[in-house]
Design a protein around this nucleic acid. Structure first.
Lengths: 232, 232
DNA sequence: ACCACATTATGGTCAGACCATAGTCGAAGA
DNA sequence: TCTTCGACTATGGTCTGACCATAATGTGGT
């Protein structure tokens, strides 16, 4: 038997090759958001592959939130470069949660980490809090746990947005998105949302007064109230 | 014009439908890692769609790190459920960085957030630090910036692993992965890696002595040394 | 100018074929 | 009986060519 020198032959599927070439074009030619890729048929001919392979590559890019395909004709048709990582991150987390490859506890811990950081950041930067206030009034008007969670999500995502870091904000949105049903359940069990409301006000005031430590503390205690079973 | 009651018809592509049905099967039937999906041809016939559509759906799931396809025959062939979010996250970040949809500053900030949190967690939990020590000796033996970054990445990912949170660890790995080339450049510019080494030792000792605040501080100052241009 | 219809470029879908790969199974031989 | 080797087959990977739906664009008539 051959013991040395043999590397397993790298099996590269065609669509992966297409993928690599498209990515190379993006980085080398400096393509940016809004630019159009060639049409599927044209790309297939230029690369010497079938349209199916091109389509599979584009499907991957679409899944990752890098391109968006439009049918029809005109300047907006075809595969256009975008940058929408939110949906991709949400799908990713939701599916892996569903496979129980991740525990809910881990997601909530990650959320706590992000939110503390973001709240502290927002407080330091004295960020605009109008979105936070709007979400607050939305929660007051909510008539069901689902509606409450809707505005609650808006509130917490607004904190992440206020941090000014789009990557962190995107991760935050995805975390909330993928655990929506757990959030609704948590609100149902807590019943009394007045405690949560007081927490929200406290967070908001801490950010407005520019107190990062207090903002982080407020976030921490808020999550402890919202998920009492996880923080004993 | 009709002002009320009309919702735009939701255009659902076939593969999205397939995707939804597969996901439903995963959650409802409690499928888990290691289980096999039906063969492409069989799935296509059962769902009444073409094999291409099934393939596009599977391609999406593969991109998200949820299934892994093997050719051939036998128990390991076909589409098998997995849970490998790392590659998906890396691709996501790398592509969006390339599109300048994200600034390097944002990625580094996110990394700082994660690493401070993870180091503090590891210190509190008095986590096992053997992987950290191993990476440290690896860095000492490195002969090039590439090799150094290799072990440096291992060191920092080991911190995230030591936090015990797999989601956070996966995000960390992806962040490092997607910014590898920037890291190499940073090491090249810093030149003197002895400062970085001292930082690493300091982080390691803080974790071993169970001092979360010191661990977080050490991480923060380490990143300031590694990317002096970003932290003025 | 304006409107109605034909044209066309685009993605979306399908059917069917062929290839490469890797277990499975059975027959031939030791 | 056991081993070995070749045929078989189930699987994903790829390609071709066709047709459909959509939406902008050209074109002609009013």
């Amino acid at each position: 038997m051959d013991v040395s020198g043999w590397r397993p032959v790298k099996r590269t599927r065609t669509f992966e090759d297409v993928l690599a070439q498209i990515e190379r074009r993006i980085t080398e030619d400096g393509l940016t958001v809004g630019d159009r890729l060639p049409a599927e048929r044209q790309l297939a001919e230029q690369l010497g592959v079938s349209r199916s392979s091109v389509r599979e590559a584009l499907r991957v890019l679409e899944t990752l939130g890098v391109v968006s395909s439009q049918v029809g004709r005109g300047p907006d048709a075809g595969a256009v470069l975008t940058s929408r990582p939110d949906a991709a991150l949400s799908d990713l987390l939701r599916l892996h949660l569903g496979l129980t490859g991740l525990e809910l506890r881990e997601v909530i811990d990650a959320r706590l980490m992000i939110e503390q950081w973001a709240a502290a950041r927002a407080a330091t930067a004295r960020a605009d809090t109008s979105a936070l206030a709007a979400a607050l009034t939305g929660m007051d008007a909510a008539g069901s746990p689902e509606q409450f969670v809707e505005h609650d999500t808006a509130f917490h995502c607004a904190i992440a947005d206020a941090s000014g870091n789009r990557l962190v904000a995107a991760i935050m949105r995805s975390l909330r998105d993928s655990m929506r049903k757990y959030s609704v359940e948590a609100v149902r069990q807590v019943m009394d949302t007045s405690i949560l409301r007081a927490d929200h006000v406290r967070i908001l005031e801490a950010i407005e007064s520019g107190d990062p430590e207090e903002a982080a503390r407020a976030v921490s205690e808020h999550l402890a109230h919202a998920y009492p079973t996880l923080f004993r």
